[in-house]
């Protein structure tokens, strides 16, 4: 019994010391982590919507997650939206960031997360594929050709963008 108490005490001391140290490190790095994440987010948004100067997240009223971003130009005029679409590819969920102008034309897209077959599905992240989306109608996208041998991955990107664009259009309409 005495041993038990001693063991518990020693473990507690070690845990308290560890927790204190971690709290200190967290306090030091916390703001930096948030800043880095934000900078990264802004850079990614800028990449699919180069014409915009400012982005504003639109939060879901229910659970405070970001639904999409409104993109404003330098005169603070609304020029379009940026959203994240995700679709099931061949071996992973493919996440795509897409920028869409007010007239439903796509500004640019960027595949931000995927894990497909190297040499086939992975090629959907390449410019040769994503570049086809520029200036296409986001609700149709019939001008985008799937990569030979990687139909499933290509369709995942195309279909998820169309689906999400429709959803966003509905949401924006209801907002007004």
């Amino acid at each position: 019994m005495k041993d038990m108490a001693r063991y518990g005490f020693i473990l507690a001391v070690i845990c308290v010391a560890a927790a204190g140290l971690l709290a200190a490190v967290n306090a030091l790095t916390g703001p930096k982590i948030i800043a880095a994440a934000q900078a990264e987010e802004q850079a990614a948004l800028k990449e699919v919507m180069p014409l915009a100067g400012k982005f504003m997240p639109v939060k879901s009223p229910a659970d405070n997650t970001t639904l999409y971003y409104k993109a404003f130009d330098n005169q603070d005029k609304l020029i379009g939206f940026v959203f994240k679409a995700s679709g099931k590819g061949y071996s992973s969920v493919i996440e795509t960031l897409a920028g869409v102008f007010l007239d439903d034309k796509i500004s640019a897209i960027k595949v931000i997360s995927l894990n497909e077959t190297p040499g086939l599905g992975m090629r959907v992240a390449e410019n040769k594929f994503t570049g086809q989306f520029n200036q296409q109608d986001s609700l149709n996208l019939s001008g985008v050709e799937a990569i030979t041998g990687a139909t499933i991955s290509s369709r995942a990107v195309i279909d998820s963008v169309i689906k999400k664009a429709q959803e966003i259009k509905e949401m924006v309409k209801n907002d007004k």
Binding site: T29, A36, E40
Partner: peptide, 8 residues
């Protein structure tokens, strides 16, 4: 934590 802060 350090990796996240300095090399995301």
């Amino acid at each position: 934590l350090c990796l996240k802060a300095y090399s995301p």
